[in-house]
Design a protein around this nucleic acid. Structure first.
Length: 242
DNA sequence: AAGCCGGGGGA
DNA sequence: TCCCCAGGCTT
């Protein structure tokens, strides 16, 4: 009997279809952000992932130009005065914690000339780099496929396929495997951006727009809602774990 | 593997 | 007020 934490063939097929459909959806409905531009440097792409934590992409977009004009590279950020940096970060919330994290990360990166280890096991020692930013480093700095597994990707995968078992996204074996499979391959970046946009615009935490969802035909969450007759809004509150 | 932490903004 | 937002850190 296979482990309940293993990806089934059915899971894989569904995740593959999901990634393809969301990339297609994003081609017409995806959001445009400066940090996704070809002009964005690796420094900007990694730094912005710290800016984006526990805040909205809209808020980050609002400070993006000013921030990177004042702190254009790792050296500038590493030498920033905490007080000045905090002023830039205030609109995002968590500004004291974020300033300290950014300076720690920047000091590290400035010391290596902007290079990061290619082995994710070596990332845990780097300030402000947890599982999420580690994957961002693999994805944007090393050009490797990696899932930006945050609450958004987790929500979409859990609704479409099945809920995770553990409370913490970062420790659930099935969800980890599912995300990795979901974001595998040469289109990893596009898949990651597509699911973030889809989660923000359609598969929202509070009021998902299931009626206009491009994948509702095979979404477990929507199918369950439809067959149970329970109003969607009620079901949203309870993604049951098993 | 859980608990804790910590700020702005929208519903 | 409560909940959500591209989580990291400590235990």
């Amino acid at each position: 009997m296979p482990s309940p934490d293993a990806l089934t063939r059915s899971d894989k097929a569904k995740l593959t279809r999901l990634s393809r459909d969301l990339v297609a959806w994003a081609a017409n409905n995806g959001r445009l952000f400066p940090w996704r531009s070809n002009a964005a440097t690796t420094y900007q792409k990694i730094t912005v992932e710290v800016l984006l934590q526990r805040t909205t992409a809209t808020a980050v977009a609002g400070i993006y130009d000013d921030f990177f004009s004042r702190f254009p590279d790792w050296d500038a950020l590493a030498g920033a005065s905490p007080v000045e940096l905090e002023e830039f970060l205030r609109p995002l919330g968590l500004w004291r914690r974020r300033a300290a994290a950014l300076i720690g990360l920047a000091r590290y990166a400035a010391g290596t000339g902007g290079a990061f280890p290619s082995d994710a096991n070596d990332h845990i020692a780097i300030p402000a780099v947890g599982q999420y930013v580690s994957n961002a480093i693999l994805l944007f700095h090393h050009g490797r496929a990696a899932p930006l597994l945050d609450v958004n990707m987790a929500r979409v995968i859990e609704r479409a396929v099945r809920p995770r078992r553990l409370a913490d996204i970062r420790h659930d074996p099935w969800l980890q495997a599912a995300a990795k499979w979901f974001a595998r391959g040469a289109t990893s970046v596009e898949v990651n951006w597509a699911v973030l946009d889809f989660a923000a615009l359609v598969c929202k935490a509070r009021r998902p727009v299931c009626e206009a969802c491009p994948v509702n035909a095979y979404c477990a969450f929507f199918q369950r809602a439809k067959s149970s007759g329970v109003p969607l809004a009620t079901l949203v509150a309870t993604i049951e774990r098993r």
